[in-house]
């Protein structure tokens, strides 16, 4: 009877709580044992000593990484339970991971084939999260655009005594003449009007 290898234990550390929790849930559902920590004040080497993970997944830019790397770099605290995912044959995977914003540390001697699927899941998850964030930013920028356009229209209507469709047409013409985005032109109109108001209030 073939023996199944013991379930790998993964430590997920992410300051972005939502991203970390979902990744942990996905990995757990796939059959891994997962411990997840947000970027709290816990001293990471102690967490690693306590959890004894086979693999650590952490944001590539997290300051906690410097603390984590002291396990191998200072060589003092513990018998180096974690090493960076660093073998030559892994370069492609690690390059993709770094670009997606994930870094991984694994215990020495863990087979590549067992690690790679986990990294792949993390990469996909980070990318998905990133695209959601970009979408959200775009949506809020669009909302901001609409607000600015409304304000600019109002200002033009009041100052030039024109109707709304004419104010809108004027904004569009300004944008086309300058090859600029409508939202940017609207923001500029609002900023200029505010500056004029200020200067009228307290002339230099």
């Amino acid at each position: 009877m073939p023996t199944t290898p013991p379930r790998l234990k993964i430590l997920v550390i992410d300051e972005d709580d939502q991203r970390g929790q979902t990744l942990a849930a996905v990995l757990e559902a796939t059959g891994y044992q997962v411990v997840s920590r947000s970027g709290d004040d816990a001293y990471l080497p102690s967490v690693v000593a306590e959890v004894q993970p086979d693999l650590v997944l952490i944001d590539v830019a997290s300051p906690d990484r410097d603390t984590l790397e002291q396990l191998s770099a200072l060589g003092q605290e513990l018998p180096r339970p974690v090493v960076m995912f660093a073998r030559d044959e892994d370069q492609d995977t690690i390059a993709r991971a770094v670009r997606a914003g994930v870094s991984a540390y694994i215990t020495e001697g863990l087979a590549n084939a067992r690690v790679k699927p986990i990294i792949d899941v993390a990469i996909a998850h980070f990318r998905h999260h990133q695209s959601l964030r970009i979408e959200l930013e775009r949506a809020s920028a669009a909302l901001d655009d609409r607000k600015s356009i409304d304000r600019a229209k109002g200002l033009l209507m009041a100052r030039r005594r024109i109707a709304e469709p004419d104010a809108y047409a004027l904004l569009r013409k300004l944008a086309m003449d300058r090859k600029a985005k409508l939202g940017d032109v609207a923001r500029e109109v609002v900023a200029t009007a505010e500056r004029l108001d200020r200067e009228q209030r307290d002339p230099a």
């Binding site: 590539v60 830019a61 990484r65 790397e69 390059a95 770094v98 670009r99 870094s103």
Partner: peptide, 14 residues
């Protein structure tokens, strides 16, 4: 925010 991050992001061209 981190030296390890700056190292990896430079090493891999981010």
């Amino acid at each position: 925010p981190s030296w390890a991050g700056i190292r990896d992001r430079t090493a891999f061209g981010v």
